[in-house]
Simulated assay, not measured.
Amino acid sequence: MTARIRVLLVDDQSLIRIGFRLVLEAEPDIEVVGEAADGADAIAQATAVQPDVVLMDVRMPGVDGIAATDAIVQRHPGIRVLVLTTFDLDEYAFGAIRAGASGFLLKDAERHELVSAVRAVHRGDAVLAPRVTRALLDHVASLPAAASASASEASDDDPAADLTERERDVFLAIAQGLNNAEIAERLFLSESTVKTHVGRVLAKLQVRDRIHAVILAHRLGIAGTDDGSRVR
């Protein structure tokens, strides 16, 4: 039997945590392993229960979701953080993305959107609503390089220089918001082969996941998303 996805819920409103728990625990492949009401507790709980995915509210008293996200991804690289926000143009949510979150989800998302987002983040994809893709990229592009650059972005060298021709094709497809199935169809490859290529691309670029690959592609001027694209 496949292990269930272990989820940590972080929100300062108990009713929201209860609602998310009810939705997620109705799924046979998802298990809620802990809850936290603030960022400091989230950091402690992440260490204690080792979740696969953290559903992270960003606007909390004390240690906010940005600081908590940064601490969790730095200490536990295998844990994925999915940010919860009330507004789709939320500076806090953008900050959490820069801190290492794998995407963000609006709190008014439909039940199936929440479940799908948790599964997507767990398998290494990124989650970002289509209506926010352009806003996020424009926001990141407007920042000073030091504010949003990863180790690879900060380098004077082209971080994509070590990619093979096929890996460059995959990188371009990621930048355009395609998922593995769509990349496989475009490049006439199997999904398992695409998954392998995606892993190599992310490793060579030194980016955490697909959303950060899209941001890097945008900063490099590589053909990327348009207003109707999606990262998932």
Rank of each mutant, 00 (worst) to 15 (best):
L163A: 08
A151I: 12
V118S: 01
R166T: 09
H197V: 00
A161Q: 09
R134M: 14
R119I: 11
V118R: 03
E91Q: 05
G199C: 02
G199T: 05
V83A: 01
L187H: 14
A96E: 06
L136G: 01
L128F: 02
A175H: 02
S102L: 06
V132G: 01
A149I: 03
V194G: 10
D169T: 07
Q176E: 14
D90W: 01
G95V: 12
L163I: 12
E191T: 04
A160N: 00
T196N: 08
E167R: 13
P144W: 03
R123L: 07
F188W: 14
H122K: 08
G124F: 14
Q176Y: 07
L137N: 04
N180F: 13
P144T: 11
F171M: 12
S102M: 09
E182D: 13
E167P: 10
A145N: 09
L187S: 13
A109I: 12
R123H: 10
S142Q: 10
R123F: 07
A126I: 06
S152E: 11
F188S: 15
S102K: 03
R131L: 08
R166W: 01
V132K: 05
Q176V: 05
P144Y: 04
T133E: 00
E91K: 02
L172N: 05
V194S: 09
S150V: 07
H139E: 03
I183H: 08
L163Q: 08
V170A: 01
N180C: 15
G124Y: 13
S155G: 15
V115T: 13
A109R: 07
A129S: 06
L84T: 11
R168M: 11
F171E: 07
E91N: 03
A109M: 08
R111Q: 11
K195Q: 12
P130R: 07
R131F: 05
S150A: 04
S142A: 14
A149R: 12
E110T: 03
S142D: 11
L143S: 09
R98W: 01
R131Y: 03
E91F: 01
V83K: 03
V132H: 12
A149D: 11
E110G: 13
A141Y: 05
R131M: 04
D108C: 01
K107G: 07
L106A: 00
V81C: 04
L172A: 12
K195S: 12
